[in-house]
Design a protein around this nucleic acid. Structure first.
Lengths: 255, 255
DNA sequence: TATGTTCAGTCCTCTATACAAGTGGGGAGT
DNA sequence: ACTCCCCACTTGTATAGAGGACTGAACATA
């Protein structure tokens, strides 16, 4: 009666199962870019669910950027590649591994300090509140790529120096040791020239082109958890972004 | 009976009216960051709508990034500033105006050419298909900020050179003349050094730090409409981004 | 030819209801 | 003091149904 892939008693929401199924169809090329996917009506009938559930599945597909719907016309597969859909907050280790490079790092400093005002403000610290400072050179396949200077409030992660081991991913440590999950981050990039010390650490020429990043990472509830200053080699790195023009992102309005 | 601000016959969706109302309350500081907003139940009763409609309003608030919900607990105002929520695709003119600067530009080139392969590929052109090329120096308050080189398929915007006047916003021209509305863009930034010619046009020192951008802008249906190469002064510009860590953005799942 | 009408198909909004599942607090029992 | 259970409240999922609005095409009319 019902399609084989729908399991009503698995605990997995129906709309989600349907969404995954549609995603699979799209990925496998059953429906081409620009072509319509089945309508709400059709999904509801064929899957044996209510129309609202079918709709929920389609909307979630849209919010993934895989499809888009047009009032009165239908829902269509969008032409965008699914993979580079949007930039995530990845730790250096994660980013390198996702590209198949082997990440390493060399610790330059790791101690508690009272930070400067820019850091204190970004992390919303109380006066005189301390942070753990971790300064590292980060390498991919033994080539130095950036110098990274991370600040984390001691209040949020006490005894970080005991729990964090050089080989681990910092974000994984935050999650497993402290139950802190980073949700999003604000990042500012500047184009600049390498100082003598930076050039030495990155093994590039003095006054070579570099990116300077400052990044503030937040938890789901909006509390800042990490502030990072980093310097990336300009000859080895690019910043990729997806920008949205939709001013009014209000649910499904503004179509 | 019903709240004064709800107009059931205005044609504006109820959930949207409610969303706007909540937004106003948050903006005016009625509810502070981290505090819960009224529950679905409460909104439904007080506004005289069904719970699903109230829920829709709250969800749309969440997708704006203004709030976040936690299963079993409630929906809370997030700590993020509403204004710098995410970066939009802005044309140079729009971006400058939004900062209160007065944009100008000096046209260096404006003609039809057969573009190089990078452009042709990004714009998904047929072999030998031509594009309008528009090369400009862009200034804010009479200071040169960047050199911008825009490519638009002739097929999509015939006679662009007739319709586009130097003082207009290009994006506005696309919208009003051709009905083409840009929906999103992919952008790649590199850190680099200014060439002699670039330094002269931007009035900076040779080998000064610059950003090199390439940007591909798309319509709602995913068709590429514009490809831009630009060089920005590194001493005057920063790139601000918001990154998301949510890997699985599937509708409301993955909370 | 040009214009207006009708109509089927589609997505959009909204209602009313039900049950499931996570959270936090209070109370009973130990 | 501590544990466990239950209950109230919250959000999450799902159903069934109704009407509205938009699109595009087929059709009728001037």
């Amino acid at each position: 009666m019902w399609p084989a892939f729908l399991d009503r008693y698995s605990g997995v929401p129906l709309y989600y199962q349907i969404q995954q199924h549609l995603l699979e169809e799209i990925r496998s090329g059953s429906w081409k870019a620009g072509q319509p996917v089945p309508s709400e009506q059709e999904i509801a009938q064929r899957m044996g669910v209510s129309r609202m559930t079918a709709r929920h599945a389609l909307k979630s597909l849209c919010s993934l950027g895989v499809a888009y719907s047009q009032h009165g016309k239908g829902t269509f597969v969008s032409r965008i590649k699914l993979e580079k859909n949007f930039r995530q907050v990845l730790s250096f280790s994660e980013e390198m591994r996702s590209r198949g490079a082997s990440p390493q790092s060399k610790i330059l400093q790791f101690r508690q300090i009272e930070p400067d005002t820019e850091v204190a403000e970004a992390l919303q610290l109380a006066p005189k509140e301390e942070v753990s400072l971790l300064r590292r050179v980060r390498l991919a396949d033994s080539v130095p790529l950036c110098i990274e200077c991370t600040h984390i409030p001691v209040r949020m992660c006490p005894e970080l120096q005991k729990f964090f081991k050089p080989r681990m991913s910092l974000y994984q440590c935050l999650l497993e040791r402290y139950g802190l999950q980073i949700d999003f981050a604000d990042e500012v990039a500047e184009a600049s020239l390498a100082t003598i010390e930076e050039a030495r650490l990155l093994r590039i020429r003095k006054k070579g082109p570099v990116f300077r990043f400052t990044r503030t990472a937040y938890l789901r509830n909006g509390k800042p958890i990490e502030f990072v200053r980093s310097v990336y080699r300009g000859d080895r790195c690019k910043v990729v972004n997806r920008l949205s023009r939709r001013v009014e992102f209000a649910g499904e309005r503004a179509n």
